[in-house]
């Protein structure tokens, strides 16, 4: 019944994207990873996803809050307001842990909020933990949802 989860990463900084991907892979996560660098391109992907039946493609979103064309919270809002897309778990990644922003993200329905630390070990640790998190995560069963 469980299909492999597709990880959708929305991150405008290619360096960050690469680091995240490497760390995830290093943590032993082999799931498919799709990378979008901006809001618009990710949105068209989600539009397609929306038309598929719920649970056809189990998805997890890694979302950077600072995007060139929109604030990450807009994507969050979009996801949480469009049918079965709201079931997709969202992990917010950001560079600054602004209290107000964190609160807003949780209010909008984000599941995890991770600050990108500058300390490399810390960063690697956070991402690897994320990897462990991915491997044990159970994407909500759309049928029972």
């Amino acid at each position: 019944m469980n299909r492999p989860v597709t990880i959708v990463m929305i991150e405008d900084d290619p360096g960050h994207a690469k680091l995240i991907e490497r760390n995830i892979r290093r943590a032993g996560v082999t799931n498919e990873l799709i990378h979008f660098a901006d809001y618009a391109s990710s949105k068209s992907y989600f539009e397609t996803l929306k038309k598929l039946p719920a649970g056809a493609t189990p998805t997890l979103v890694l979302l950077d809050l600072n995007l060139p064309d929109a604030s990450g919270t807009e994507i969050l809002e979009y996801l949480k307001n469009h049918g079965h897309l709201k079931l997709i778990p969202v992990i917010v990644l950001t560079t600054a842990d602004d209290e107000a922003e964190v609160k807003r993200c949780y209010d909008l329905g984000c599941n995890v909020y991770i600050t990108k630390p500058v300390d490399p070990d810390q960063f690697a640790m956070a991402i690897r933990q994320l990897g462990l998190f991915f491997s044990v995560i159970k994407v909500p069963d759309p049928v029972n949802a």
Partner: peptide
Amino acid sequence: RSPLVNIMGF
């Protein structure tokens, strides 16, 4: 901070 994360990461 963004580039700093890269510098540190790489």
